[in-house]
């Protein structure tokens, strides 16, 4: 199951729990008696919530994409530059417009399971660089002008990956697509 679907399921469970709680309280609104031990219940509620937050932070904070495979040496560098409304993807550095037009529209091929370092930048506005496999978003990084964002990634499946722009970059944003082949 993809991360997205796990998050969705978790969300739906929380959704149902919250609805259930509110609904039960709503049902109880006609009865008499009033709530008992409010202060104690509030304290318990707070500490459970506080503990949950700490737990989740402890589990999830180490799992960030910033230092992904930082300890290993990449075996392939891939340079990506975005420009309204196309990507240039190349194993050479792309430093200027000539480099860009040489690589734009060219599909490169990389190896499955090899560590690739994507060096992602933009020549004009902010774009997004995202890797889709069979319609599932696997990884992404922003392509911001003036910065080269380095994303290290290992493709676990062979076949064609789709690259979509994920940051609104103007009228043809939806059509900004490229491909990369994995063998």
């Amino acid at each position: 199951m993809t991360i997205q679907k796990e998050v969705f399921l978790f969300f739906i469970v929380m959704f149902l729990i919250i609805v259930l709680v509110f609904f039960l309280v709503f049902q109880a609104s006609g009865k008499s008696g009033g709530a008992q031990n409010v202060n104690r219940k509030r304290a318990i509620f707070f500490f459970i919530a506080f503990g949950t937050v700490l737990l989740v932070l402890g589990i999830t904070l180490p799992k960030t994409p910033y230092r992904l495979f930082a300890a290993e040496e990449p075996t392939q560098k891939v340079f990506v530059v975005a420009r309204q409304f196309s990507f240039a993807i190349s194993k050479f550095p792309i430093a200027n417009d000539d480099d860009f037009s040489m690589s734009a529209g060219v599909e490169i091929t990389v190896q499955k399971d090899e560590l690739i370092e994507f060096n992602v930048s933009s020549f004009d506005v902010s774009h997004g660089f995202s890797l889709y496999k069979d319609g599932v978003l696997k990884a992404q990084v922003q392509a911001m002008p003036g910065y080269v964002n380095r994303l290290r990634w290992k493709f676990s499946e062979s076949g064609t990956y789709d690259i979509l722009c994920l940051e609104y970059c103007g009228m043809a944003h939806a059509a900004m697509i490229a491909k990369i082949n994995v063998e």
Binding site: I3, M14, F15, T60, L61, P65, Q140
Partner: peptide, 23 residues
Amino acid sequence: IGGVGAILDAVIANNFVLHNTQW
């Protein structure tokens, strides 16, 4: 409920695949 959706997206590891999606 919206808050739950928000903090799920605010986990960096989730945001890696949710950022700028319809989430």
